[in-house]
Design a protein around this nucleic acid. Sequence first.
RNA 1: GGUCCCGUAGCUCAGUUGGAUAGAGCAACAGAUUUCUAAUCUGUGGGUCAGGGGUUCGAAUCCCUUCGGGAUCACCA
Length: 588
Amino acid sequence: MQIEEFIRSTISEGFAELFNASIDAANIRLEATNPDFKGDLTFVTFPYLKISKKNPEQTASDLGNYLRERVEQLKDFNVVKGFLNLELSESYWLDRIRFYQPAILKKNTGRVMVEYSSPNTNKPLHLGHVRNNLLGYSVSEILKYSGYDVTRVNLVNDRGIHICKSMLAWKTWGNNETPESAGMKGDHLVGKYYVEFDRHYKEEIDTLVAGGMAKEKAEKEAPLMKQAQDMLRKWEAGDKETIELWEMMNTWVFAGFRQTYERLGVEFEQTYLESNTYLLGKDIVEEGLEKGVFYKKEDGSVWIDLTADGLDEKLVRRADGTSVYMTQDLGTAEMKYQDFQCEKSIYVVGNEQDYHFKVLFLILKKLGRKWAEGCYHLSYGMVDLPSGKMKSREGTVVDADDLMDEMEETAKIKTEELGKTEGMTDKEKTHLYRALGLGALKFYMLKVDPQKRMLFDPNESIDLQGDTGPFVQYTYARIHSMLRVARQEELNKEYEVSDVRESELNLMKTLCDFEKEVLKAAALYSPSVIANYALNVAKAFNRVYNDVSFLKEHEDEKRKFRLQLALKTSQSIHMLLDMLGMECPERM
RNA sequence: GGUCCCGUAGCUCAGUUGGAUAGAGCAACAGAUUUCUAAUCUGUGGGUCAGGGGUUCGAAUCCCUUCGGGAUCACCA
């Protein structure tokens, strides 16, 4: 980092001295040299030709010569067209790598809240939730590694018409079935009744439509829907029997979710239940009316006009005085801020809610909440199946638990094929299969840009070779098998080398990017930055591994140096995989 | 119809404040292991960066436009 500062200021001086022109060192951009060319840093002269009054090549080579005399760490330079490529000396990189230590950075400060997962309690978690959970967890870890104090929050949607549907179906057709009697996870059992409701509901609609009713009307008039709405009213009125049923079924679901979360490896510091928060936001509506941000229509409903901001008019309270989604979210946002005072607040929610969050944040700003500036919707695309969209009501979903089962099974088969589990206990094996199966799944989902919708083909199992989680894990395990054999006294920083091979130099440079990449990932809330960097580290190491010997290197100094490289690579990988929520098996 | 997102190799994807000849993995083909884990490494083939226009010394990247895919515009959450 510091070398770049120095080069920048020297370039600035060079412009003054060579071309009698003044440019601000802070505005000079140094880019990473394109790998096809020799060098580490590149200065592009094109924007400065008017000041230098010379052609690109001349400008670049004049500056190159100027720098070479003044920058000690500069080994050489070359000029291609108007690009001045600066090559730093090996001793510079050797110095850097000697003092390089991957660690939690202290670069960012302050509190950040990350809200993610946010499931409904009427059905089990599916592939879409998996993407959400992995993203939320990973972004939290990345933010922690960059220095933030992170609070993870789960806002569980445990009330509403959808839950009443499951409740009604269980009451009608359930015969008092319980997770124990059915031998099912609680969330799956409740989900089963949600599907059951939908089946009967569709039949009712079909019957009504066959009787000549319009489809839209039939959807509203179907007896089951009426009953479900009736149940919701009872719930809101606090009807004892309804509340008891609701509590029982929620208990089942929560027990199921707990298992799934644990297996996925995600955690939260705080869980909010919507049954407690759904009435929030009413005083904010009053405040908005007082401030003149909201207005009331004749029927008594309250709105905000956002047409001047290019959006629509939005309802914030119904005519009957009850809340809508927006009302609740305003209230919840306020409450979360009061509870934790986080200056940044990340909402990990699917991109079908882009509009909602745009409106939410805008309203908060208009209400004068300065912390609204720190609100960010981390929007991610849907996960598609080859057959199209997943629909839980129709049962065309990839269930999270099933998916994890399959991934672990695939990992098991592959590992057994390779025959590397000799001497491992059953417990260790199970642990390994889980680490690898979930590692593959997590890496697969996190290495792509969240914004993009992704296709998942359940018939084509996730690869374990190539650019995958197990590839990175393998590199780690491989290093560990070396470190196990290495003598303790060889693992120290007291080495003396002067010449390094191309592959080693490349690894050193790659490792030194750790801080830059973590900060970039944190700034962009993007686990894919970490995943792709982890791949680069692993690849750079594997190239060295195939190029030179470590333990069998005869020269002591070189052996010590290489072991240090291996050690630092493994530490880097461990931290990077931590950020992705992946485990690092020491054998595989 | 309004708004927003996406479109890069056969497939899955990198490529972010505009930089050089657009990169990986999978799949295909050809190689590397008497040596530290071959879940590895090396190489070959594969591209109208959806199409067109513009801005710029320079565009996959920024602007306009057309096409294709998706979301959203609920007194559902």
